[in-house]
């Protein structure tokens, strides 16, 4: 889990070009969207693409998306549960 959290931090910053955010700014239990990080609904869709590409996890409807993107930890758990590429 910790390893995935760290990997996701790097990938999120890189994917969204979060120029003024460092990895330590992303608290695994804080709101990922709509908070201080400046991540909005368009960014979430960009992350959906990244997660499908990197982890083979498809996040389809926006209702599921809201829960999955509630926090970094929620996102990591969802990936761990659903990724064919990662051991559970």
């Amino acid at each position: 889990m910790e390893e995935l959290l760290q990997e996701l931090r790097t990938r999120i910053i890189e994917t969204l070009d979060l120029v003024d955010v460092t990895e330590s700014d992303i608290d695994p239990d804080h709101h990922l969207v709509g908070g201080d990080l400046g991540i909005d609904s368009i960014d979430v869709l960009e992350l959906v693409v990244m997660i499908e590409k990197e982890y083979g996890v498809h996040i389809e409807s926006r209702e599921i998306g809201e829960k999955v993107f509630a926090s970094l930890r929620a996102l990591a758990s969802y990936i761990l549960e659903n990724s064919p590429r990662l051991k559970k």
Partner: peptide
């Protein structure tokens, strides 16, 4: 590049 599997929603907007 991704054989039409992926693209960027940000670029589309």
């Amino acid at each position: 590049e991704t054989d039409e599997e992926f693209t960027s929603p940000t670029d589309f907007v």
